[in-house]
């Protein structure tokens, strides 16, 4: 029973982390039909921002305040990656609208460049981020050990999802984003500036990637290619959940996270990868457009 609960918690924790990465991808793909392979590097940049904030705190801020660096680094990572995302959108992505395959190749190239820049600034070896002391330790509920770090990530992701949901459903800007996702020409003819919506969405998606990078520093060391490890799982979530639907992305992340944690526990990490992949292929036989999809009469 304890083992089951522990695995359930680990699965939830892994799902929530993947969800944070997949959200940004899902929004941008749903809206612009652009596959952003450089999204993984937003995670990497977010993680390095956290590392840099930590270095600055070590050298410039009194030691008693050191523990607060992590709280500060989350908004900083969000802002930095969102700005980089905006820059990428303005300089590259806007030429690639509705060309998913081309955007995939071009952003892959961008990703290589980002990784090389990171390698030149921070060096090829991994760097470690010291977690603030208030995140060390764990709480035991019904003899299941829950580390604070993982709980923190879980809460962070919940806040992000709720915030995003609020933004998309309640605010004017978010509703515009929804409208453009559903029907671009119609939204444009009703006076919505679709270019602006696209840029905002891309910045928002990249910012979420940055926050994911922040969370990643709690789980392990940071290297230039750290994002690539997660990006493909995140894409699988987007495919499984259905494109452009937050609800679908959440469900997809839960499926993949739980399935992979449980199979990994029962067998090995290798088998888990194979099982998850087979599951996705089989699942798509049943629902080719993902868990949640918009009904449409449009053919292609």
């Amino acid at each position: 029973m304890e083992i089951l609960l522990t695995q359930l918690f680990n699965g939830l924790s892994y799902s929530s982390f993947l969800l944070l990465i997949a959200l940004g991808l899902s929004i941008t793909f749903g809206l612009m039909r652009v596959m952003n392979m450089a999204h993984g590097d937003m995670i990497m940049i977010g993680a390095y921002v956290t590392y840099s904030v930590q270095l600055i705190f070590v050298s410039m801020v009194p030691e008693s305040l050191f523990d607060y660096y992590f709280i500060l680094s989350i908004p900083i990572a969000f802002i930095v990656t969102a700005l980089i995302g905006l820059l990428v959108e303005k300089s590259l992505i806007r030429f690639l609208y509705a060309r998913p395959l081309d955007s995939l190749l071009a952003t892959w190239g961008l990703s290589l460049i980002f990784q090389q820049i990171a390698r030149m600034i921070f060096g090829a070896p991994n760097v470690a981020v010291t977690a603030p002391s208030w995140l060390n330790g764990n709480v035991e509920i019904a003899s299941v050990v829950l580390p604070y770090k993982r709980l923190f990530i879980l809460v962070l992701v919940c806040l992000c999802v709720l915030g995003l949901y609020y933004y998309l459903v309640k605010t004017t800007a978010g509703r515009r984003m929804n409208a453009v996702t559903l029907n671009r020409p119609m939204a444009a003819s009703l006076g919505i500036n679709t270019r602006k919506v696209d840029a905002t969405a891309f910045a928002l998606g990249s910012g979420l990637g940055g926050v994911a990078g922040c969370a990643l520093t709690l789980l392990g060391p940071v290297g230039p290619t750290v994002g690539t490890n997660y990006i493909i799982d995140a894409f699988m979530i987007v495919i499984l959940g259905g494109v452009g639907k937050i609800k679908g992305t959440v469900l997809g992340a839960l499926c993949i996270g739980l399935l992979s944690t449980f199979t990994e526990y029962g067998t090995s990490a290798t088998i888990a990868k194979v099982v998850v992949f087979a599951f996705i292929i089989i699942f798509l036989q049943w629902k080719p457009s993902g868990l949640i999809s918009t009904r449409t009469r449009v053919l292609d």
Partner: peptide, 23 residues
Amino acid sequence: IKGVYFSLISQALVVVFVTLFIG
């Protein structure tokens, strides 16, 4: 299943096989 979905599935196939061969 076509377009970019297929591309991503084919990429996941690579991950699966590389992990399998290393494992």
